[in-house]
Measured scan of single mutants.
Amino acid sequence: TEKEKEVKRLAKERGLSPDQVRELAQRAGFSPDQAKQIADEFA
């Protein structure tokens, strides 16, 4: 999704850790499970 792409782009730009990616995703409105899946891509 657009929102997911945006979260991943920000995460890459900022060099976020997987935990930070998960927090960012949840703040963007993703469920905890979705946020974990997104964060796992950065693990």
Rank of each mutant, 00 (worst) to 15 (best):
T1Q: 14
E2R: 07
E2Q: 10
E2M: 13
E2N: 10
K3S: 07
K3Q: 11
K3M: 14
E4N: 05
E4P: 03
E4V: 15
E4Y: 15
K5T: 12
K5Y: 11
K5D: 14
K5G: 07
K5P: 01
E6T: 08
E6Y: 12
E6V: 09
E6W: 15
E6I: 09
V7M: 06
V7P: 00
V7L: 15
V7Y: 03
K8E: 03
K8D: 02
K8V: 09
K8S: 03
K8Y: 08
K8L: 14
R9T: 05
R9W: 04
R9Q: 10
R9A: 07
R9M: 08
R9H: 05
R9L: 07
L10T: 06
L10R: 05
L10A: 06
L10M: 09
A11M: 01
A11E: 02
A11H: 00
A11Q: 00
A11F: 02
A11V: 01
A11D: 01
K12M: 09
K12C: 12
K12W: 13
E13C: 10
E13H: 06
E13D: 08
E13L: 14
E13K: 08
R14F: 15
R14M: 15
R14W: 15
G15R: 09
G15K: 10
G15V: 04
G15W: 05
G15E: 07
L16F: 06
L16E: 01
L16Y: 13
L16W: 06
L16M: 09
L16R: 02
S17K: 10
S17L: 08
S17N: 14
S17W: 06
S17M: 06
P18C: 01
P18L: 08
P18H: 14
P18R: 12
D19A: 14
D19T: 09
D19K: 12
D19P: 09
D19M: 10
D19N: 10
Q20G: 07
Q20V: 03
Q20A: 08
Q20T: 03
V21W: 01
V21C: 14
V21A: 06
V21N: 00
V21K: 00
V21S: 01
V21F: 02
V21Y: 02
V21P: 00
R22G: 05
R22P: 02
R22I: 15
R22V: 14
R22Q: 12
R22W: 12
E23T: 08
E23Y: 06
E23Q: 12
L24Q: 03
L24W: 06
L24E: 05
A25H: 00
A25R: 00
A25C: 04
A25K: 00
Q26T: 11
Q26L: 15
Q26V: 15
Q26D: 04
Q26Y: 09
R27W: 13
R27I: 13
R27Q: 15
R27P: 00
A28M: 15
A28T: 07
A28L: 15
A28S: 11
A28R: 09
G29E: 01
G29M: 01
G29F: 01
G29C: 01
G29H: 01
G29P: 00
G29D: 01
F30A: 04
F30M: 04
F30I: 04
S31F: 04
S31R: 05
S31V: 03
S31C: 03
S31D: 11
P32S: 09
P32K: 08
P32G: 05
P32W: 11
P32Y: 13
P32I: 11
D33S: 13
D33I: 10
D33P: 05
D33N: 08
D33W: 09
Q34C: 08
Q34H: 11
Q34P: 01
Q34Y: 11
Q34G: 03
Q34T: 06
A35P: 02
A35N: 01
A35Y: 01
K36E: 11
K36P: 01
K36Y: 07
Q37P: 00
Q37H: 12
Q37A: 14
Q37I: 12
Q37K: 15
I38C: 00
I38M: 06
I38Q: 02
I38R: 01
A39N: 02
A39Y: 03
A39F: 02
A39L: 03
A39D: 01
A39P: 02
A39R: 02
D40E: 14
D40T: 09
D40Q: 11
D40I: 12
D40A: 13
D40F: 12
E41S: 12
E41K: 06
E41L: 06
E41T: 09
F42S: 04
F42D: 02
F42R: 03
A43N: 08
A43F: 14
A43I: 11
A43T: 08
A43V: 12
